[in-house]
Amino acid sequence: MDKTVNQKAWFLVLPVFLVVAFSAVLPLMTVVNYSMQDTFGNNQFFWNGVGWFKELLDPSTDLGGRFLASLGRNLFFSMVILAIEVPLGIVVALSMPRQGWTVAACLVILALPLLIPWNVVGTIWQIFGRPDIGLMGYTLNAMGLDYNYVSNAVDAWITVIVMDVWHWTSLVALLCYAGLKSIPEAYYQAAQIDGASRWAVFKAIQLPKMNRVLLIAVLLRFMDSFMIYTEPFVVTGGGPGNSTTFVSIELVKIALGQFDLGKAAALSLVYNLIILIVCWIFYTVMTNAGAERKVQAESEPATEPKPLAALKPVTALKPKEGVA
């Protein structure tokens, strides 16, 4: 489908442009302004040039040390939850019932954690995990495990990770489920005729059909875990010590806690830049994948899901489709 060139389309985009520019560009300009200055209160500002940025990227200073440590923690956290949530989400999507009222019931329950305000998610896990009043904390301690997320850094990490898995695996699962639903029945029949194993079906049919939604899932999960703030803040408050202080928590501490505008602004810009770069990489990969798929679909429309060599659905497919 070729799009026609029409510059008047800008008029249709203008409202979006204005709304987003109002809430994105204006504040960002303030941030850039602050990031170059130093303040000693009383609204007196002094030019500081790139001083904050130098300090930020130098681990030997207080600011740089805190920033780089929280960045490391945050990246580690994102990797761990991606490694858990993506495979688990795929397994859950594959386990969805096929028809009947159970489908709707499962979908509603799966979507439930996504609609809970983030601070309530924190509250739920705080209440659930406390050794004195929480079911999980109490049970673990009764089993002889010394579990206390308030004082033990490892326990705090486990709690935050399990909470995130609880909160967001459903998103991955629902996305994968949507991908799976779009696979025509005929593909499975063709695979059956060829005697493909369960694993071959997954690798040759289901995974290629899911890769687009999986890319969206990974993008969303990476971004959201990279800017996570509310849930760990409510549960652990960034502690014990600084062990669960992620970049956003550090930033809010500096900006709204200490009102250190220059440092906070410099940190914001670097933080935003990292996000922008990662976002751009994903966007490029995604549009390239889309373009490739389009080209492929145009040249050989019937064999779109890249069949295995052993699995030639084209010939087997045709009569089957006629029967169905």
């Binding site: 994105a24 800017m227 956003s248 928590i249 709204l256 914001s268 933080y271 976002c279």
Partner: peptide, 14 residues
């Protein structure tokens, strides 16, 4: 799209 991904913490103060 990049604004969808921007961390809320960055924008809180501005």
């Amino acid at each position: 799209l990049s604004n969808r991904m921007a961390p809320a913490a960055v924008y809180a103060l501005p």
